[in-house]
Simulated assay, not measured.
Amino acid sequence: MSDTVQWFQYKRGIVGESQRVVHCARAAGDERLVSWCRREFDPTAVEPTAEPGATPAPGEATPHGPCIPCLLLVTSATETNDSVAAPPARDGLPHGVR
């Protein structure tokens, strides 16, 4: 995946274990992280992880299961575009995906 994609999940104890899925966002230094599935996260509540299925690098948590909408959207974007700037606009999503 592109170096501009940041993978993360909630830290242990913030939410239940079933909610600790791996999301992805465009790497940025903003106050809030906005994932490709359009959820907002407080950066202090999440931890960096390896890409789903990858071995974690030093400082990365072992990833839980992926957020399917994030995974599908970022995979689609990277297959069609060398630059992963931002998630597609809501109007650009297929019918029924919001």
Rank of each mutant, 00 (worst) to 15 (best):
residue 9 Q to R: 04
residue 10 Y to V: 00
residue 10 Y to C: 00
residue 11 K to P: 03
residue 12 R to S: 10
residue 12 R to T: 13
residue 13 G to D: 04
residue 13 G to K: 01
residue 13 G to W: 03
residue 14 I to N: 04
residue 14 I to Q: 08
residue 14 I to R: 11
residue 15 V to A: 01
residue 15 V to H: 01
residue 15 V to I: 03
residue 15 V to M: 05
residue 16 G to Y: 09
residue 17 E to Y: 05
residue 17 E to I: 08
residue 19 Q to T: 12
residue 20 R to C: 08
residue 20 R to P: 06
residue 20 R to E: 05
residue 20 R to S: 06
residue 20 R to Q: 13
residue 22 V to D: 00
residue 22 V to I: 02
residue 22 V to P: 00
residue 22 V to Y: 01
residue 23 H to T: 00
residue 23 H to L: 02
residue 24 C to Q: 07
residue 24 C to N: 10
residue 24 C to D: 10
residue 25 A to Q: 03
residue 25 A to Y: 01
residue 26 R to D: 05
residue 26 R to K: 12
residue 26 R to P: 07
residue 26 R to W: 09
residue 26 R to H: 12
residue 26 R to G: 06
residue 27 A to L: 15
residue 27 A to Y: 10
residue 28 A to P: 01
residue 30 D to H: 11
residue 30 D to W: 11
residue 31 E to C: 04
residue 31 E to Y: 09
residue 32 R to K: 06
residue 32 R to F: 03
residue 32 R to D: 04
residue 33 L to N: 15
residue 34 V to D: 05
residue 35 S to D: 14
residue 35 S to W: 07
residue 36 W to Y: 10
residue 36 W to K: 01
residue 36 W to V: 01
residue 37 C to M: 02
residue 37 C to G: 02
residue 38 R to H: 15
residue 38 R to C: 12
residue 38 R to A: 07
residue 38 R to N: 11
residue 39 R to P: 06
residue 39 R to H: 15
residue 39 R to W: 14
residue 39 R to V: 13
residue 40 E to S: 13
residue 41 F to Q: 08
residue 41 F to H: 10
residue 41 F to I: 07
residue 42 D to N: 15
residue 43 P to D: 12
residue 43 P to V: 07
residue 44 T to Y: 13
residue 44 T to S: 12
residue 45 A to G: 11
residue 45 A to W: 10
residue 46 V to Y: 14
residue 47 E to P: 09
residue 47 E to S: 15
residue 48 P to T: 11
residue 48 P to Q: 09
residue 48 P to H: 15
residue 49 T to N: 15
residue 49 T to W: 06
residue 50 A to K: 01
residue 50 A to V: 09
